[in-house]
């Protein structure tokens, strides 16, 4: 928690400082825990909605930000997903490193993207 400037427990802290550093981004993008969470979120995005990809992304967006995505945001994310999917279909080794199927792998990275939105990190 040092990375997130949490106070150490040896002293009382009257006030926590607002904190927002590049090190946070490195953790929430790259820490295996967040990848694990992204996999789980991707699983919820598929299991709790229908098979349509934009529906799944909308659901993920709602779960992480408590908002519906705008049409532009949804388009941005579905295009991003299409790119990831193509990439993972062509690179099975990389795909396997993330999830079982290229589809799941692409959605996992989308879930990770959602976790890293300012709207998801800051309430």
């Amino acid at each position: 928690m040092i990375t997130f400037d949490a106070p150490t427990r040896d002293l009382c802290s009257a006030q926590r400082i607002p904190t927002n550093t590049p090190l946070h981004a490195l953790v929430t993008l790259n820490d295996p825990v967040y990848l694990e969470c992204s996999r789980a979120l991707a699983a919820r995005m598929t299991s709790e909605t229908g098979p349509g990809i934009s529906q799944q992304i909308s659901h993920g967006y709602l779960l992480t930000t408590q908002q519906q995505p705008t049409a532009a945001t949804l388009k941005l994310l579905t295009n991003l997903h299409a790119g990831f999917l193509t990439h993972y279909q062509a690179n099975p080794t990389e795909s396997k490193a993330i999830a079982n199927t290229p589809g799941q792998a692409a959605l996992t990275i989308i879930a990770n993207t959602l976790f890293n939105l300012d709207a998801a990190l800051t309430k």
């Binding site: 090190l23 490195l26 953790v27 790259n30 991003l80 792998a105 890293n116």
Partner: peptide
């Protein structure tokens, strides 16, 4: 001194670029 400077296995750099652009 700094943790998680590398992308997770299976995430190439251009994919990370695309992710950050979208974010």
């Amino acid at each position: 001194p700094v943790l998680y400077l590398s992308n997770p296995k299976g995430v190439p750099r251009d994919m990370r670029r695309a992710t950050i652009d979208a974010i």
